[in-house]
């Protein structure tokens, strides 16, 4: 699995993502600047890390969604390539239209920086097959706009087609519709989630709860 990690101005979690990928994949991921128009040849997985791309101007992820590299990412996704968006990366994927819905300001208006618990809704995907279905794991979160929303028909479709990847299993602190923390695209090859599995992949970080995500991708 060859991974490319996208870098937009204002992104600040790309090194965390490099560590997680390097450890599980045993291969160095490539960092790709947002002004590039092509992904590195042979890219299997595109990762959009967290941060505050373009200072969250206009809306979180709105400006990054217009960056030149995103055209290549859309083409990659249309070819069935894997895409993972975490936090701001998830927001960029919804702004790009690769995932439905949107992330609103947290219901309590506060920036939330703390651990949360996530439940694995399905484990028959390339992202989640190292967890048991229904497994609950710890994941740090750090966001001001993580309140997932979509119209009722879209939410019903996501649930009907079993496209909810993770739900908040302890407290739904940001007010997300139906406690949704992460979703898949219909082909199960695009995943976006708000919390940060890449920040718990080594005992030195305080745990390895997030490592199964990267181990599963490494084995794909």
């Amino acid at each position: 699995m060859k991974a490319a990690i996208l870098l937009f101005p204002g992104i600040n979690r790309e090194r965390d993502m490099v560590l997680a990928v390097r450890q599980s994949f045993g291969v160095e991921p490539q960092i790709v600047w947002h002004k590039e128009t092509e992904l590195p040849a042979g890219t299997d997985l595109v990762i959009l890390p967290g941060g505050f791309s373009f200072g969250d101007y206009l809306r979180c992820g709105a400006m990054a969604a217009q960056s030149p590299i995103m055209r290549a990412v859309k083409a990659h996704a249309e070819r069935g390539g894997y895409v993972l968006g975490v936090c701001n990366g998830f927001q960029i994927l919804t702004e790009t239209g690769l995932l439905p819905g949107a992330l609103l300001r947290n219901a309590g208006l506060r920036f939330l920086s703390m651990d949360t618990m996530l439940r694995v809704e399905r484990n028959d995907t390339v992202f989640t097959n190292k967890w048991e279905k229904g497994a609950v794991f710890r994941a740090p979160m750090a966001h001001g706009d993580g309140n997932y929303t979509a119209d009722e028909a879209t939410l019903d479709r996501l649930e009907g087609e079993n496209l909810v990847a993770f739900r908040y299993a302890d407290i739904n602190r940001n007010g997300s519709a139906r406690s949704i923390a992460g979703i898949f695209a219909p082909n199960l090859r695009v995943l976006g989630l708000m919390p940060h599995p890449e920040n718990l992949v080594d005992p030195l970080m305080g745990g390895t709860d997030g490592k199964p995500l990267f181990d599963a991708l490494a084995a794909a």
């Binding site: 702004e95 439905p100 949107a102």
Partner: peptide
């Protein structure tokens, strides 16, 4: 295309 996100 940009100024509004018509989802929300």
């Amino acid at each position: 295309k940009l100024l509004a996100n018509t989802v929300i």
